[in-house]
Amino acid sequence: MSQPKEIFVRLDRCVGCHTCNIACTVEHSKSKNLFESISEHPTPKNRVYVEWVPTDHKVPVLCRHCEDAPCMHACISGAISRTEEGVVITNSDKCIGCWTCVMVCPYGVIGRHLETHKAYRCDRCPDLKTPACVDACPTQALVYRTVEAFSGDVRQDAARKMISEERR
């Protein structure tokens, strides 16, 4: 079996341009077109967040598809499951909008869709070979690799390590 790929963040490269946000939103629209997506209902939602930390660090944050995914075990309706590729997904047909997953995700990456009353998050773009955000990032701050290829490090620690490297 080939190693599942993951999205990694290279913090030293992120310039905070938010191109990933737009690509993500468009990919999660019905039309998959920037101009048409703006007027769609329900409003397409972005699932990657570019945060700003003083003094001047940009930190893209997105679902880590955690190994023992707290959100999946906490969901009170069975809406969250893991695919064979290791992607943790929310089935919106099953979601009842109780927000338990929002309460337990330690990364704060589950959004609430107010129009549909459903939870949403990164699904690693099941229709694409490379997730839209990774493809769109002009500085290659987001990369899509296997853990091995990236650093040989465990997934939870990947981002942390990158920051310490950056500080060195």
Partner: peptide, 12 residues
């Protein structure tokens, strides 16, 4: 205003 970036920076 807390986000994961803050926690990340705080942890290391």
């Amino acid at each position: 205003q807390l986000h994961y970036g803050h926690i990340l920076k705080e942890t290391i």
